[in-house]
């Protein structure tokens, strides 16, 4: 799977990091999210889906192949 992050939409809530800490992290200076892994393995699927669902900025998308 491929994860897309629309960075300018991010509001630095940190919900994605709680849902999938192996895929998402936040910048120290402003809390904006970034991807640790753009193509995480199947193990991360549930966590990434959770992040997509809870992101309060609709900034995350799961592009399945």
């Amino acid at each position: 799977m491929r994860v897309e992050l629309d960075e300018p939409k991010c509001v630095a809530s940190g919900q994605c990091v709680l849902a999938a800490p192996e895929v998402f992290d936040q910048r120290d200076e402003d809390g904006i999210a970034f991807l640790l892994d753009e193509t995480p393995g199947a193990d991360s699927l549930d966590g990434v889906r959770e992040a997509v669902a809870v992101c309060p900025a609709a900034a995350i998308r799961l592009a399945e192949r």
């Binding site: 630095a12 940190g14 990091v17 936040q26 910048r27 120290d28 200076e29 809390g31």
Partner: peptide
Amino acid sequence: MPPKTIRRWR
């Protein structure tokens, strides 16, 4: 505040 601090309080 930086995210790590906020997460600690959460």
